[in-house]
Design a protein around this nucleic acid. Sequence first.
DNA 1: TTAATTATTAGTAAGCGTTATCGATAAAAT
DNA 2: ATTTTATCGATAACGCTTACTAATAATTAA
Lengths: 149, 149
Amino acid sequence: MVHRKFQRMTPQRKIILEELRQLRFHPTADEIYDRVRLRLPRISLGTVYRNLESLAAQGAIRKLDMAGSQRRFDVNTELHHHIRCLRCGALEDVSVGLPSSWEDMLVDTHGYDIQGVHLEIWGFCPKCLEDRDRVNCQENTDHNETCTH
Amino acid sequence: MVHRKFQRMTPQRKIILEELRQLRFHPTADEIYDRVRLRLPRISLGTVYRNLESLAAQGAIRKLDMAGSQRRFDVNTELHHHIRCLRCGALEDVSVGLPSSWEDMLVDTHGYDIQGVHLEIWGFCPKCLEDRDRVNCQENTDHNETCTH
DNA sequence: TTAATTATTAGTAAGCGTTATCGATAAAAT
DNA sequence: ATTTTATCGATAACGCTTACTAATAATTAA
């Protein structure tokens, strides 16, 4: 008996969805805002947030709450995980699912009724590994923070 | 050649660490603040944050950036994962580590040099599963949000 | 021991990402 | 045609965290 509110496909909502579909890397709200503003210069950031929220509620997109950082939005609504490059910030989908036997073990051990799994992996992407070998950043104390761009 | 700054064990830092060790469930900064204030009524929230930060830098505690929620702090500095109850908000350590074969597969598939893995699981804890059977909340649209306390 | 340096403090302001409020507007329902 | 409702842009408020400030106490250097 869930009452699903009627949603209008306004020009704003349509363009937000279009731009989100074109951005390969799961963008943040303000990245989407910047893109959308090129086509709708008078749109407000609140409208972007409001529409991303309702699109997520409707199941058209997926809201990603990443650990310790800005929220991101994903057109891929399938359940999947993410891997992030600590150097360039790239956020990729992870193609390999968790083994179901592992989840079963969790249920047995903790007795939880599992509703969702959120997995984030951090590392250095192949491209940045190359760069790291070429350009030596190691005299800096923290590669992660000094080399991010 | 990492220069580690000298750290003083001030009364504030000492008490923050003591209280954190006594709180079983990974507390947030303001939960720690409330506890510490009972012993140091004039301490400021900024001091709590500052000390939690430096204790984490020094490796005495672990900073947990949970998806979409407040930061939490953990005295368990071993690498481990977490499971959270959607109803009562309990946050438990997960005893079962990820299979190493799975991580190997990730490296092969994506070519990343993996630095860290962050796994969060959501579900209903055994205690809340019981309560859910006793007290019927199902006429509400969203159990997760209405029943949290 | 005395003087200079440094880490730390409490208090407060600022920052940042997100959400809520508001009157106005336009689409949908009656 | 009239009412109802969703949505809008603009802006204020919110919650959590960090940065700034002058004051203070611990450490180091002279």
